[in-house]
């Protein structure tokens, strides 16, 4: 069975990457399982997806423990232990990292036990090109397995991205095929691991959970205002923007109705939104009697202004 893990950040299309590779395997006649894994946090948070592919029925489930291939779409993740990029890597595992640093550097820095390959990453700050990193990773991964044809890759990308329209699809396809061709000399370097037989298993170190008193064992957080440390503003897809020309400084409607309590009042009595924590529910917009709040898609907003509040 092939076991492949994609690591990236929320918003980088790791789920779709897993799906594209899953579809490509499926088109080659493999049994397939693909799935994303994420928590409550969204854009920017480390997420991963995984793909299993086998000529036989797949019974294994859940997170891949011993990956044959680890694909890292964002090299800043390699330094974050919590992202779990290296988890379960063995001498058999191949690491493919989207980065402009040489593979040698990563091999040393991460002390990776298996072969390390890099895929040229877009220049820093080139957000347009970053959008196609997922597709490029899929193209490269497909080639590294040596069992996916250019044709199947093309069809898989087409199937999974059809909803994005022809123009975006074409760019993704380009990125995928370019990476596919780039990896020609490494084709087939990712192989299915041999399965270890049941006789030789390592006994799990089970323990009897001790009793702890409720003051320890209840899941409470006693430190104040810890939620401030979580930038929930990253979850937002649309941003409420206050038009101060029209704001009547009624001084309580938006600020008291915001379910996240992120609208404070300035000394002059103007509402100020804390964009680090505003989730973009737009309740403020729909409740403002003077229609002084408008919604701007986050991508646009991030480009045109650098936030009103903090």
């Amino acid at each position: 069975m092939y076991r492949i893990r994609f690591h990236g950040r929320g918003g980088q299309g790791m789920k779709t990457a897993g799906r594209m590779l899953g579809s490509a395997f499926f088109l080659e006649g493999f049994e397939v399982q693909d799935a994303p894994r994420y928590g409550a946090e969204r854009r920017g948070a480390p997420i991963f997806s995984y793909v299993r592919a086998s000529r036989r029925n797949i019974q294994e489930r859940g997170i891949i423990r011993r990956p044959d291939l680890i694909v890292v779409a964002d090299d800043t993740l390699a330094a974050i232990p919590a992202a779990g990029v290296l988890s379960g890597a063995t001498a058999h595992s191949v690491l493919l990292i989207s980065s402009n640093r040489p593979a040698e550097t990563w091999r040393e820095r991460l002390n990776f036990p298996g072969p390390v390959l890099t895929l040229p990453a877009p220049a820093e700050g080139d957000f347009q090109a970053t959008k196609f990193t997922g597709a490029a990773c899929v193209g490269a991964a497909a080639r590294l397995t040596g069992v996916i044809s250019r044709n199947s890759l093309t069809q898989a990308v087409r199937t999974e991205l059809a909803h994005l329209g022809e123009a975006v699809l074409a760019k993704n396809l380009d990125a995928a095929l370019q990476a596919y061709d780039l990896m020609a000399e490494h084709a087939g370097c990712v192989t299915e691991a041999t399965e270890s037989p049941a006789e030789e298993y390592e006994k799990p170190a089970w323990i009897d959970l001790p009793f702890d008193e409720a003051r320890v064992a209840a899941p409470a957080i006693f430190a104040p205002a810890t939620s401030e440390q979580v930038p929930t503003g990253l979850w937002r897809t649309v941003r409420p923007v206050i038009d101060y020309e029209h704001c009547k400084r009624c001084a309580w409607i938006c600020s008291s109705l915001c379910p996240d309590g992120v609208i404070s009042l300035s000394e002059e009595g103007f509402p100020v939104i804390d964009y680090e924590h505003c989730k973009g529910c737009l309740i403020c917009m729909s409740s403002c009697p003077s229609h002084a709040i408008r919604a701007v898609p986050e991508e646009e907003a991030a480009g045109e202004m650098s936030g009103g509040g903090r």
Binding site: R19, G22, F26, E31, V32, Q33, D34, A35, P36, R37, I58, R61, G62
Partner: peptide, 10 residues
Amino acid sequence: GFYLSFTREP
């Protein structure tokens, strides 16, 4: 949840 809900299979 997750193990089936978000997992694709044939």
